[in-house]
């Protein structure tokens, strides 16, 4: 192999610690069925789905600059695909989740062709209109309960696992695995050649274009990929809920407002942001749950305070102060070893 004078390395001291911590956390979480009760498992699974949704939205808005307020279109699409495939076509629920991904990406193509003609605020409005159209369409499907929705048939639920406990374990692990897969895919994307271009687009679109990057094409690809991931997570969410209706599936509140809140307070345009944001969001939700509707007001207040004091989010604040990155994304130039060891290294 021809070896250049220089190499690039991704890892830093902080990212080595970060990756170790993330790995350890993953193992602890994978063992949760052995240490947590039902409530804990449910809460954790819900947290995972929000980490995934927020990470996908962050890729879309934070990196590709596509500020969508209509990702509920894909959450709902995934949910309805699950119910349609399971009820109408007898597909296994897990297979249905996996099928929802590619279909989400496919549906993203005509949607993107349409809304990519819009700029700035009009783009955001366009995404929301598309989601509303999806909601109206869903309410027309009488085989899936029309406007009032439908539950997953008991027979299907029972067939998933021999016992209720095992089924709960199964959905929990599924949620963990899917979220891990979404995060892994995003990290792999960002570390790739296209990720370099995407990061350039995040920082400066005009300069990216002027330096040979086909910005529109990369945005299109990112929109398809997030459609893929969001539809899959949507299907997962409604497998956990066991019931779907147009209003819950295409809820702008649950699948966009909360997701934006999470991403913005955690740190938009940074891969760690949505994870930090989700943790903060759920801590606030648990702490403020007793306050009733006041809790939304408090969330809003927190968002405003964070935006004023730390416009780059909590992780942005920490990362810039200490120069940390929890995941090895950046390339550091290092001088390659001058000569190859004869006989090669062990």
């Amino acid at each position: 192999m021809s070896q250049g004078k220089y190499q690039a390395e991704h890892a830093t001291h902080s990212s080595r610690i970060g990756v170790t911590l993330i790995g350890a956390t993953f193992v602890v979480l994978a063992l949760a069925p052995f240490w947590g009760d039902r409530q804990t498992l449910r809460l954790l699974a819900e947290i995972f789905t929000f980490v995934a949704l927020a990470s996908l939205w962050n890729l879309l808005a934070g990196y590709a600059g596509l500020v969508s307020v209509g990702q509920q279109a894909f959450v709902g699409l995934g949910g309805y695909l699950l119910f349609a495939l399971v009820i109408l076509l007898d597909v296994h629920p897990i297979a249905a989740i996996l099928i929802a991904g590619p279909i989400g990406a496919l549906v993203a193509v005509p949607v993107a062709t349409l809304i990519f003609r819009l700029r700035g605020a009009y783009f955001a409005i366009g995404t929301w209109v598309v989601a509303e159209v999806f909601r109206l369409l869903a309410s027309q499907i009488s085989a899936l309960g029309g406007g009032s929705g439908i539950s997953l048939p008991a027979a299907v639920v029972i067939a998933m696992a021999p016992s209720r406990q095992l089924r709960e374990f199964e959905t929990y692990w599924l949620a963990l695995a899917l979220t891990g897969a979404v995060l892994g895919a995003i990290v792999a994307l960002l570390r790739s050649r296209h990720g370099l271009a995407l990061t350039a687009i995040r920082d400066n679109e005009v300069a990216a274009q002027s330096n040979g990057i086909d910005v529109t094409r990369i945005k299109f690809i990112v929109y398809m990929l997030t459609g893929f991931g969001t539809a899959m997570i949507g299907a997962l969410i409604f497998l956990m809920k066991l019931r779907i209706s147009p209003d819950t599936a295409f809820s702008v509140n649950d699948w966009t407002a909360f997701v934006i809140f999470i991403t913005v307070i955690g740190g938009i345009g940074r891969i760690e942001g949505p994870i930090i944001g989700t943790i903060v969001f759920f801590m606030l939700r648990q702490a403020l749950a007793d306050l009733g509707s006041l809790y939304l007001l408090m969330m809003g207040a927190v968002a405003i305070v964070v935006m004023l004091w730390a416009p780059k989010g909590l992780w942005g604040l920490i990362a810039e102060r200490f120069g940390w990155q929890a995941l090895p994304l950046q390339r550091y130039l290092v001088l390659a070893p001058k000569t190859e060891q004869p006989g090669g290294k062990p």
Binding site: A197, T199, A200, N204, Q330, L333
Partner: peptide, 15 residues
């Protein structure tokens, strides 16, 4: 118009 969040090296590599 640098890519501010990227390293100097990455700025030229991407171009």
């Amino acid at each position: 118009q640098p890519f501010s969040g990227m390293t100097v090296f990455e700025n030229v590599v991407v171009a």
